[in-house]
Simulated assay, not measured.
Amino acid sequence: MFLPAEAANAIDDVVVQDLRRKTPFKVDDIYCDYEARKIASGERIEVHQWIVRRHFVHLALSQIRVDVEDLAFVAFDYTDGRSPVAISLRRTGEARSSWRHKLVPVLCCSAVGLALLSGGLKYLNQQATLDRLGEEIAAIGKKAQHVRALVDQLHEKRNALVRLRVQRSEAPGLIDLWEETTRILPPHSWLTEFRLAETSGMREQQVTMVGFSGAAPSLVGIVDGSRLFFDAALTSPVAFDAAEGRERFALQAKVRRPAMLKEAAR
């Protein structure tokens, strides 16, 4: 029979009720005893009961001429290897008015006191454990909030990096800019140097063109009118090169970003 741990103080009553319900014998016709122990989990109590009819005990004692009042218990030894079972003759019988039986109430009170003390200690231990767990949960909660904030920051940085990569993937590349420059330069002009640089935290691109031209000042308007370049300007004075028979120039222009390209297309 299995009982909840809360029924530990009422096992005697439960055992009597169980005997009346499951056996055809009256309580006055039998000797009975039980053993109760808690299961490892501590949530249930396992109860083993043993009964023997008084008639059989009295008959066996009469054969050896022993009075039942002189015995405290009878034991049975199984033949299948199980441990012997002892049944108290005082649990349900009439107690003898001796000093041994007077100790029963004292022992019961002591057992109740110990049970209450054990329960109190268990409650205090549980309360201390709950308090400690509460403190640990609060500390873990603060750490979790800090970790959450770090994760949010990482998500923001990741999203910003993704947007930057998308923007850069949509922006014209070096080959695109070189082809556009080749397309817009007039026949009397050619380049000796072409550089692409990124400024303002890699959010703006700028090209530098150095070369010779038959009409260097006019290149500012030509480059500025391109769909890929804007804000073109000479970076140094135009100087005539006698060896080339052309004007030497140095020009810079900014590269239109994807959003600006969409507006220019409109």
Rank of each mutant, 00 (worst) to 15 (best):
A60L: 13
A265I: 06
A171N: 05
A264E: 13
T208V: 10
L121K: 08
A215V: 03
R65A: 15
V85G: 00
I140V: 10
P217Y: 02
A242I: 03
L59M: 12
F194Q: 08
Y31H: 12
K122I: 01
G42T: 02
V162P: 00
R203I: 09
E46R: 09
A95K: 13
A86F: 02
Y31S: 07
S200L: 12
E69V: 10
R227K: 06
L185R: 05
E198Y: 10
H155C: 06
F25S: 09
A60W: 09
V16L: 10
E156S: 13
P217C: 01
L196C: 06
E170K: 12
A95G: 08
F56D: 15
I45M: 06
V68A: 14
A128K: 10
L228C: 01
Y31T: 01
V85H: 00
Q63T: 11
R54I: 04
A115K: 00
R256D: 03
A128L: 10
K262W: 04
Y123W: 13
A7F: 03
K143A: 13
R203P: 00
E193P: 00
T129H: 03
L191D: 06
R165F: 01
Q126W: 07
A5R: 02
P237K: 06
G225C: 02
K262G: 01
L185W: 03
E179G: 00
S83C: 06
V52M: 09
I39A: 12
I45H: 05
P172V: 13
F240Y: 15
R203E: 12
A216K: 05
L114H: 00
G211W: 01
G93W: 05
I137T: 14
H58F: 03
M202A: 14
R91Y: 11
R163E: 14
R163I: 03
G119T: 13
L161N: 08
S213Y: 09
A160G: 07
R246W: 01
L228Y: 14
A10C: 07
R96T: 07
R44S: 07
I222E: 04
M1I: 08
A7E: 09
E135N: 10
S83G: 02
A139M: 11
A72R: 12
V147H: 04
E204P: 00
Q252S: 14
G225M: 03
Q167S: 11
Q49Y: 10
P4H: 03
S118L: 05
Q49A: 08
I11W: 06
A144P: 00
A250P: 01
E179A: 10
S189G: 12
S236G: 09
A139C: 05
R91D: 04
V15L: 05
G113Y: 05
R257T: 15
R163S: 09
Q127P: 00
K22I: 03
Q252I: 07
Q167K: 13
T208D: 07
G221T: 15
R20T: 14
K143S: 13
L150A: 15
L251D: 00
D67T: 09
F229N: 02
G120A: 15
